[in-house]
Amino acid sequence: MDFLAELGPLVLALALVAGVVLAAVLLYRTHDDDAGEASAREAVISPEVRAQLSQAPVEAELRRQLVEAELRSLRAQISPHFIYNSLNAIAATIPTDPVRARELVLDFADFTRYSLRAEGEFTTLREELAAVESYVLLEKARFGDRIQVRLQIAPEVLGVRIPFLAVQPLVENAVRHGMDSDTGSGTVWLRAADTATHAEISVEDDGHGADPQVMHQVLHGEAGNAHIGVRNVDLRLRQAYGAAAGLMVETAPGAGMKVSMRVPKFQPDPFQPDQPHQPDQPHQHQEES
């Protein structure tokens, strides 16, 4: 009876969270994508359209709409199997560890609230890392110690502003493609270094890697839906900071993959040029999660 008494509120909380997330997804798609799934797919701008835009002056409002379209596409990808897998992991934890299940419900709520938020194309590295932490905790509920994510973050760059959902999709890509298919395990390193004028952020895994030519095609929109999160982040970095600010991918078959970006520490919002950014005060160094 004590166990059932403990289980009841957890099941109710889980059902409530699932209902809230479903409502948020439906509201988001209704509000921002009246054309439904077809428009979500079209939100990944074709290379031909992107080439036309790059050949002519692009007005600020058009750039904003393009960024918002890319964000809608990225959010649409987050919802389906991540929600399904997370809820399954939480449900499996309830009988054996109800307290841990309650914590996972809160992690799930934090992650979905951040990922599906409607406002702003920018966030801070600190806020993005909080979303990464929630994501990793939910994945570890599925894979346990088979997945390891290690952090090495310079405290000076925690307040640097970055495009929204610029880091978490890279960590997700590293987890999905970096886990060894034979052992079902892998390690991901997330690093952020201070170089005085820039924050250098990288996500590296020890998986099977990929053909460099394939990743070149990914970044140029020539590989279909492969690594679409990486492509999306690359495009938004270039839109925000210029053509030279895209992702750098280092990989080879059997050698893992490292994806890096350089984000200026002091740069005004490209849509609000009169509002320069100032990083927050330093915080303590983070070593491992």
Score class of each variant (00 low, 15 high):
V44P: 02
R126G: 03
L71Y: 06
L125Q: 11
I153N: 01
R262K: 07
G144I: 00
E68Y: 04
A226K: 12
L137N: 15
L104H: 08
R262H: 05
S54G: 12
G178A: 04
Q77A: 12
G120K: 11
E172Q: 09
V249F: 12
A13P: 00
D32F: 15
R113C: 06
A245Q: 12
V249I: 14
A174E: 05
G186I: 01
I147W: 03
A245I: 09
G242E: 07
Y241W: 08
K258V: 02
G254C: 13
R231A: 14
V203E: 01
D110E: 14
L7F: 13
P163A: 03
L165E: 01
E288G: 13
Q284C: 04
E156I: 02
G144A: 03
Q239G: 08
Q217C: 05
T187E: 13
G224M: 07
P155R: 03
P268N: 06
S181K: 15
Q55D: 08
T195M: 01
A18V: 10
D211G: 10
S39A: 15
H81F: 15
F164M: 14
P9L: 02
P155Y: 05
H220I: 01
L4D: 02
I147V: 15
F122G: 01
Q148K: 14
R113K: 10
L116T: 09
L237E: 04
L137M: 05
S260Q: 02
L106W: 00
S289D: 06
A210R: 03
N225G: 01
A60E: 11
A5R: 12
G209R: 01
L129S: 05
Q284M: 12
F82A: 07
S289G: 11
E42S: 04
S39V: 13
G242Q: 06
V214G: 04
F3Y: 14
D180V: 06
Q152T: 02
A118I: 14
V218M: 11
A141S: 03
R29N: 11
K140H: 13
D110T: 01
T96E: 12
A130I: 06
L190H: 03
L71H: 09
Q267V: 06
F143N: 10
K140E: 12
R142C: 04
S79H: 15
E127S: 15
L26P: 00
D211C: 10
Q152L: 02
P9G: 08
R100W: 09
A130M: 09
H31V: 14
A56K: 10
A24P: 00
P276F: 07
G186M: 04
P253E: 13
V171G: 02
A118M: 13
E204K: 06
V233C: 05
S39Y: 10
V132A: 00
P57A: 08
R41D: 11
D234Q: 03
A210F: 09
Y241T: 03
R126Y: 04
Q77T: 13
T183Y: 04
V49N: 00
T123L: 02
R50S: 15
N88K: 10
H283C: 10
A255D: 10
Y241V: 03
L12E: 11
R29D: 13
A91I: 13
P80F: 05
R63L: 15
V11H: 05
